[in-house]
């Protein structure tokens, strides 16, 4: 053991290889490999007579995707929903996280964290269905606020509800790491609360918010169940993928549609990485 240990100590490359080989085998070979196969299959087609996948290069699926207006509309709608959900989550999460990390008495902080975490354990479907009841005709929301009923706004609201904890937690973690002494120093140097917020809090907040937004944005972009429950007649991009793979057995076309959210997320991730927020996850 000891000799192996010292051998490894003298050969850091070997240690690195030992540490990385298994995870990389998993993520690159299994995961990226699977993704690659999926994306390649987007160039295949299904034979209408036999239902067999024809493994022959064709741009047909992408042509349909670009030619039919409906796919563009649905893609834009989905991005809009994901963006709106993210904005709502930020607006609600930042003050809550700030309260939890900096205002609440230290002793009650971890109870607040538990309070935020607990809903994650209640089933996603059950929560979505609870919202269906809340939003029904003459239901509690209708009685109190006169709306919004089922439809796109309801979808945004419920998705924001479902993913809110995924925004609160990273923002809270970021703020918690910000030493109180720094805030006090800023105040001692004569900065008002607003100035302190801009110069001290905001630089911590932005990466945390971006980190949280990866979750709220991507989880919303891929959702196809919530919209079925509270979305009225709305459909999002996840529904299109699901319909083509689940019902029609048309994997190539489903794969072609799936390229759209993949592309959007990869661009989003690269943009976020440039801002350095990935370090904050």
């Amino acid at each position: 053991m000891a000799s192996l240990g010292s051998y490894l100590h003298r050969h850091p490359r070997l240690r690195l290889a030992g540490l990385l080989s298994a995870p990389l085998l998993w993520l690159v070979v299994a995961y990226l490999g699977a993704l690659a196969v999926l994306l390649v299959s987007a160039f295949w087609t299904v034979n209408g007579f036999t239902g067999e996948v024809v493994r022959q290069f064709s741009l047909g699926n992408f042509r349909t995707l670009l030619a039919e207006e409906v796919y563009r509309n649905v893609a834009l709608r989905s991005v809009g929903v994901a963006a709106a959900v993210t904005v709502i989550c930020v607006v609600v999460a930042v003050p809550m996280a700030f309260f939890m990390a900096k205002v609440a008495p230290a002793g009650s902080r971890h109870w607040l964290v538990i309070a935020i975490l607990t809903p994650l354990w209640a089933s996603y479907l059950v929560k979505a269905y609870a919202w269906r009841i809340l939003l029904a005709n003459d239901g509690p929301m209708d009685t109190l606020f006169g709306g919004p009923g089922y439809g796109l706004p309801a979808t945004v609201l419920v998705l924001a509800y479902l993913w809110l904890p995924y925004m609160i937690l990273p923002v809270y973690a970021g703020l918690e790491r910000l030493p109180d002494s720094l805030l006090e120093a800023s105040a001692d140097l004569g900065a008002r609360a607003g100035r302190t917020f801009r110069s001290v809090v905001l630089p911590t907040l932005v990466p945390s918010v971006l980190a949280g937004s990866i979750f709220t944005f991507s989880l919303s972009l891929g959702d196809y169940i919530t919209v079925q429950i509270v979305g009225g007649k709305t459909q999002l991009i996840g529904n299109l993928v699901y319909a083509n793979i689940g019902a029609a057995n048309n994997l190539p076309f489903a794969a072609a549609i799936a390229c759209v959210p993949v592309l959007i997320m990869v661009i989003y991730l690269l943009a976020v990485r440039r801002s350095g927020a990935l370090e904050e996850l």
Binding site: G48, Q235, N249
Partner: peptide
Amino acid sequence: TCKDYAAWTQAWTTIKG
């Protein structure tokens, strides 16, 4: 030639808009 189910599915997408 009739429309197969894959075509029905794609049409359903355009119907829902």
